[in-house]
Design a protein around this nucleic acid. Sequence first.
RNA 1: GGGUCGCUAGCUCAGCGGUAGAGCACUCGGCUUUUAACCGAUUGGUCCUGAGUUCGAAUCUCAGGCGACCCA
Length: 489
Amino acid sequence: MSELRETRLEKANALKEQGQEPYALRFDLTDRMARLQADHADLANGTERDLKVSVAGRVMTRRVMGKLAFFTLADETGTIQLFLEKATLGESFAQLSSLVDAGDLIGVHGILRRTDRGELSVKVSEWQMLTKSLQPLPDKWHGLADVEKRYRQRYLDLIVTPQSRETFRRRAMAVSAIRRWLDDRDFLEIETPVLQSEAGGAEARPFITHHNTLDLPLYLRIATELHLKRLVVGGFERVYELGRIFRNEGVSTRHNPEFTSVEVYQAYADYNDMMTLTEQLIASVCEQVCGTTRISYQGVDVDLTPSWRRATMHELVQEATGLDFGSFQTREAAVEAMRAANLPTPDKADTVGRLLNEAFEHAVEPNLIQPTFVLDYPQEISPLARKHRSKPGLVERFELFIVGRETANAFSELTDPLDQRSRMELQQERRAAGDVEASGVDEDFIQALEVGMPPTGGLGIGIDRLVMLLTDSPSIRDVIAFPLMRPEG
RNA sequence: GGGUCGCUAGCUCAGCGGUAGAGCACUCGGCUUUUAACCGAUUGGUCCUGAGUUCGAAUCUCAGGCGACCCA
């Protein structure tokens, strides 16, 4: 209600009349809360330490009792109690107790004192309004229980939910740990276009936009793959890009239309090398962010200590269903066996390989809790991966699954330009037939391959899903500061 | 796309056919060791929107909006 706001505006005006700017320019602070708490843990109850400190932050709670008051002041690192007494503050005590609300940002000068009840406090001798807040804070006890509000008004969530702050702190740590790990191994981060005239590198619907001056339809990238490979053709032997990807798809606890990936390409390597790289990289990031590689996700223990299980898609499906997809000569044979095993056989899965993938997604994927590399995918669902060196119909590809979720995807990259062209033409046929996720032929990319790409291992990791794992977050929206929301009605 | 659940005061929630409620927050008064401070008083409402049933709807029905979760 705007009555609260009116009251606070009046307080802001009252401050002005008393010569206090309600929106201050700056404040010289000497200390931050967490450090003060740590450095003065030895201060005895009921005693003072004659050390002048200046701190600033947001007033979280107020407890006023006549001529004495206690505020809790929070900065980014933590909280400290303010010990406010009329005897010390004189006239400005009345101002404090009547014009400062929970939610205001203030700066104070004072000395340290631990109260009789053992709370380290700043005994304030001087205070200054830094920013007057016009909106009330959420319930101090329950916090922001409304999930929708947490996403729509993330700033409130961050103010009152310490766990939310910790999640984004960890996300930042994870992202910088990934960059550091790759930089240390001579991988070069190169930025590739977000706006593309052909959206390729994955099977997904793109967002469409338009360039006015060139009168050109453009797509937001659905992957960084094809441009990073062009860089490998150009002679950069170790490249990566960590950045935003856009896919015009639904929203769920595991999907946001814009998300972050890191794609890594290493010349003269294959998918076996990328497996080692993946487990080393993720284990290292986990160690740095969580302090251990044995973590707990939503009550389930997950052990990310290398090395991880490696099994082929065929083996895993057979293990879970008893079906040997290597023995099916025709789609009909596979359909018959799958029906007998109560597995769905959608029409769009029009080959044995696609049916294998269906069986995998249904019977295996949700049960891959511990990190597992799934190897050797059907060629028809992997148009950018090279043919397997010894298994006909399959490609050298792995996906990494953790807690039932696809977390990484990697290939021995397809370097044969003629093979790549025929794969892309197949995609184009599917698109012509109505598959909105199929891409077309990227002529410029084919031309790059014709110039010659060295044998290369490529890898993509979904940063958001990795961060979910490292922060024990149940929804992707918990790890994206401002997730996509439908506008409020 | 389908299903289940939710939407009531700034926040957290109760009420489930008969006058719109509580705690916290706000405002006022009291209080020099509180930390969900306490005590007293007051203030605060498009019960998500619209239509219907009914003497009477926050409550029942239908449609719509937004969200959460599950399934595809």
